[in-house]
Design a protein around this nucleic acid. Structure first.
Lengths: 219, 219
DNA sequence: ACAAAGATTGAACGGCTGTTTAGAGTAATA
DNA sequence: TATTACTCTAAACAGCCGTTCAATCTTTGT
């Protein structure tokens, strides 16, 4: 049956449609019937596969966590160029823009997940915090950044600043006229972040970037 | 009837209980009956005063927005000392910690509001963004900060970094063992933020603070 | 080919939701 | 005091919710 252009299990289809709807409207605002319709099945089948709506939520959480584990794994594996870029300190934003399709529901889902007071939320944040701490330590070892007087707080601050773009995406897109997760948005954001991380708020533009390809800019 | 230790209108009591419950569990997870019980009235009366549950949400939104308008007004009025502190760039965090009781539901409500895709959310963020832009311009005029190559993005970045503490409060408290909105948490957070905003990530500890009372630290 | 197991459906059930309605108490007006 | 207006309640209503159930259709194992 599921042969032409569809090799996903029905279970996976339901899970993915739930992810999409949960990301767009929040789990509480989405009904089992809506998920079933979106997946082209009956409401009973959704329950049959996931026992309950909360079971479905858990399955979606687990799937998203696994996706992130893969992304984080690829990051620490293929590391190298971003080590010379203080702003790419495990930049979640860039990581997602690179590894995820442009219309992926995962950023929106992550936004809700991180603010949801669930176990999955705590586990994910803890993981991101550990990565942030490790990255800061590595940068310090390489002499590219100071660990600061309070390394744990500094690592948390860098992580929070990174996540802020994700969490406030819609509001920022409104205010700036550019989606901060788009190519142009990320470039403009990173430009300011690099300057500040490089030499502080008083620094003149164009300081801070350690390796900029051409310095042809001259207004 | 409402005389001893209660000069609030019944309407106001309902509104405040709704604010408290909405902040704690989210508007969708709270029922009209729960609000009515918390306020000590019948469910019908809640509807009678606010027409519908959504009307109640709007009233709460409006009340929170008005509260913030007052706080922002007091900020720009009593300005002065914080102008010399680049990190206090309209610091929402500090503003709320100062003007709100420690158990106020408003921080939690704000967190949900800013991510809710409602008109109130857009209005509030736009207002905060304008304040951030104005503050950055004032700091630049005073020679205390550079407006950056992209002033709008820089103002948005400073605002987002400020709001991040609020949005991720629970997760940060988990990871750091300190509520970042508590006195100790704010002090530690501001310490790192001042250093980075002062001279960047490479700066040694204790640079960046323009007016630190004693420099007795020497490890 | 036959039987067992699993996938799937349509209809139904009880419970909870926001809201309505009719009416009882209470204060203000005249 | 009679009337009007307002606050408030108890009960009920219709609708939607997650979930269950019995019965089919489809696949798998032997």
């Amino acid at each position: 049956m599921r042969s032409i252009s569809n090799d996903r299990t029905t279970r996976a289809v339901i899970r993915d449609e739930a992810l999409r709807l949960f990301a767009a409207h929040g789990p509480d605002a989405v009904t089992v019937r809506q998920i079933a319709t979106a997946a082209g099945v009956s409401p009973g089948l959704v329950i049959h596969h996931f026992t309950s709506k909360e079971g479905l939520r858990d399955a979606v959480d687990q799937h998203v966590l696994a996706t992130f584990e893969v992304m984080l794994g690829e990051m620490t594996t293929g590391a190298g160029p971003e080590l010379f870029d203080p702003a790419a300190t495990g930049s979640l934003t860039e990581l997602m823009a690179t590894h995820l399709p442009p219309a992926s529901p995962i950023p929106d889902y992550l936004r809700r997940l991180l603010l949801s007071d669930t176990e999955a939320s705590r586990v994910l944040f803890r993981r991101l915090f550990d990565v942030s701490q490790a990255t800061l330590a590595a940068l310090a070892q390489a002499g590219l950044a100071s660990p600061g007087r309070d390394p744990a707080v500094r690592a948390a601050l860098l992580l929070a600043n990174d996540l802020a773009v994700l969490l406030l995406r819609d509001r920022l897109a409104d205010a700036l006229g550019v989606d901060p997760l788009s190519r142009e948005g990320m470039a403009r954001w990173a430009g300011e972040l690099l300057t500040i991380y490089g030499a502080g708020l008083l620094a003149p533009p164009d300081s801070g970037q350690i390796s900029n390809e051409h310095e042809g800019e001259r207004p």
